[in-house]
Design a protein around this nucleic acid. Structure first.
Length: 476
DNA sequence: ATGTAC
């Protein structure tokens, strides 16, 4: 896009001053190159978000931002319920609570080498992947309610996982305020056989090698050493989250006029936080968060089982579990005053700094682990939250590389089989039910994740701790 | 992202 539309505030901060219906500025964190390469749609969508009622401070875009539904993916916006603030289904995203969880193995990658193919096979057999994938778990009405209100805590109670997993999950594995009665029969129907499945698109289960450490102290606290094997899971709330998003979006479009909300774009449909519709969405969305937390918890259990067939004596402990499609009630300082705000993060990771009360004790001194998934075949990163991120974007950071090309464009340009062979030659094993899906996820269809993470680090959104390289990737 | 349109 045209960078002359911005006032450059510092090395990584670009501002669009309020104009027209904008209530606050729009701010993008990027360098000149990333900003130039960013779709003009990010500018339009972010300035549209800045017009919404009750928005506080600014509408923010992370360095991985790209064109999304209504809100850009990589967008952060906070709303004050006492100032007419709103909640938007498109501002959370359709894959509610999509996120990344990383497991530590303590195993040196060299020990994996003789078992690499076998582990790829075991994981691929154990964890269902792909569009409409179903698992071995089938939820009746009671179990569905338990899952929607209990999240990873429910999964643990069903025997999936270990008690010590919970403290290393946002919300300690259970999102409070979930109201399962706002989740429709149709959404439940779509989910009842999908627990413990990866889904499709950019979702994956990846065995990785710790390739580089940027901060020895924090890496030690996080349990990361060079050449350690780790496993990351990227997925969300599957059909259920999508159905909740679809249904509430429609209702929000229909009721906008009733709430006197002027929408610059239908896709920005929202409802006042204090309205019945806003509250119902929050209740359903929180149930969607629990679905994603339970899903990643079950996949963790399946992963442990698969790994145990080859390495019966190792323990897979959680590094952390982050969600990057949410709207959460948080305390933030605005003009020296503590405010309770509803922070939308869509394709953006929460990144609380050192000392934050919601962090597990083990990470309280260093800050929250921020898990950044790379694209297929490229590096992933572990960062940690900083104090200054609170002032930069409500303690938020990027969530991945960010698409640089549409799925259709990518599937025309590359062939799945060729990519799989090419990555195999680099020592990366890909297992996927869909070669078209693989083509859509071609590494070059994404931005350079290293450049994105460098900007997040330089902007103070989060600090680089470690780089992970893929070894085995189970793709949805 | 998604029973890749209801």
């Amino acid at each position: 896009m045209d960078t002359s539309q911005f006032i450059q505030r510092d090395e990584t901060c670009w501002e669009i001053q309020p104009k027209g219906a904008m209530r606050v500025p729009a701010i993008i964190y990027a360098d000149a190159q990333l900003l130039q390469d960013m779709d003009q749609k990010v500018y339009e969508q972010l300035t549209n978000v800045a017009t919404l009622p009750g928005i506080v401070e600014a509408a923010y875009a992370m360095p991985d931002a790209h064109w999304g539904y209504g809100f850009p993916i990589g967008g952060v916006a906070a709303f004050d319920p006492d100032q007419g603030g709103v909640v938007s289904a498109g501002g959370v995203g359709f894959d509610i609570s999509c996120g990344v969880r990383t497991l530590l193995t303590g195993l040196n990658i060299a020990e994996l080498q003789p078992h690499k193919q076998a582990l790829a096979d075991a994981l691929y057999r154990k964890v269902p992947a792909g569009v409409g994938s179903k698992g071995k778990i089938h939820l009746n009405h009671k179990a569905m309610h338990g899952m929607l209100t209990g999240g990873a805590q429910w999964a643990l109670d069903q025997g999936y996982g270990e008690p010590q997993d919970l403290e290393r999950i946002e919300e300690h594995g259970c999102m409070a305020g979930a109201e399962s009665h706002y989740v429709t029969p149709r959404a439940r129907e779509r989910q009842k056989d999908e627990m413990g499945t990866l889904g499709s698109g950019n979702h994956y289960l990846e065995v990785q090698r710790v390739a580089e450490i940027f901060d020895q102290n924090v890496a030690k606290t996080f349990g990361l050493r060079v050449d350690d094997m780790v496993i990351s899971i990227h997925c969300g709330s599957r059909g259920l989250g999508h159905q909740i998003g679809t249904e509430f979006l429609k209702e929000m479009v229909m009721s906008a006029a009733q709430y006197q909300i002027v929408l610059p774009d239908r896709e920005l449909a929202c409802a006042p936080l204090n309205s019945p519709l806003g509250k119902h969405y929050l209740g359903a969305m929180r149930a969607g968060i629990n679905c994603a937390l339970a899903n990643r918890q079950i996949i963790t259990h399946l992963t442990r089982q698969a790994v145990a067939t080859l390495f019966p004596n190792i323990h897979l402990g959680l590094l952390y579990d982050v969600s990057h499609n949410t709207c959460k009630l948080e305390q933030h300082m605005i003009d020296g005053q503590r405010k309770s705000l509803f922070v939308h993060r869509k394709g953006a990771t929460r990144a609380f700094g050192p000392g934050h009360p919601d962090l597990p004790t083990v990470y309280k001194e260093v800050g929250q682990p921020v898990l950044i998934g790379g694209s297929m075949g490229t590096s992933s990163y572990v960062l940690c939250g900083t104090k200054e991120s609170e002032q930069r974007a409500f303690s938020s950071a990027c969530h991945g590389a960010g698409r640089a090309m549409s799925r259709t464009q990518a599937s025309k340009q590359w062939q799945g089989r060729t990519l799989v062979d090419k990555l195999a030659a680099q020592g990366i094993i890909i297992r996927s039910p869909s070669m078209r899906g693989v083509a859509e996820e071609a590494p070059l269809a994404y931005k350079d994740v290293g450049a994105v993470v460098d900007i997040a680090d330089r902007a103070g959104l989060a600090r680089k701790v470690a780089r992970l390289e893929p070894v085995i990737c189970i793709k949805g």
